[in-house]
Amino acid sequence: MALEPFSPSDHDGHHDRVLIAELGKLNERLGHYILRYLAVDALQAEPPNMTEERRLAEMMTALAGRVLERAHRQLAPNAPSEPFEGDSRLRGT
Rank of each mutant, 00 (worst) to 15 (best):
A2H: 14
E4Q: 15
F6G: 03
F6Y: 15
S7N: 12
S7W: 00
P8Y: 06
H11I: 09
D12A: 11
R17V: 12
V18S: 07
A21D: 14
A21C: 05
L23M: 13
L23E: 13
G24R: 11
G24P: 02
K25S: 09
K25W: 04
K25V: 09
N27M: 03
E28W: 06
R29T: 12
L30R: 06
L30Q: 13
Y33A: 13
I34V: 15
L35V: 08
R36H: 10
L38T: 09
A39F: 01
A39Y: 01
V40W: 02
A42I: 02
Q44Y: 04
E46D: 14
E46F: 01
E46R: 11
P47V: 00
P47M: 02
P47I: 00
P47A: 07
P48V: 04
N49L: 03
E52T: 02
R54E: 09
R55G: 01
A57P: 00
A57I: 06
M59Y: 02
M60L: 10
L63V: 01
G65A: 05
R70P: 05
H72N: 11
R73D: 10
Q74E: 13
L75T: 01
A76I: 03
P77N: 12
N78T: 13
A79H: 07
P80M: 12
S81Q: 11
E82Y: 14
P83N: 11
P83C: 03
E85H: 05
G86P: 03
S88A: 14
L90I: 00
L90A: 02
R91V: 04
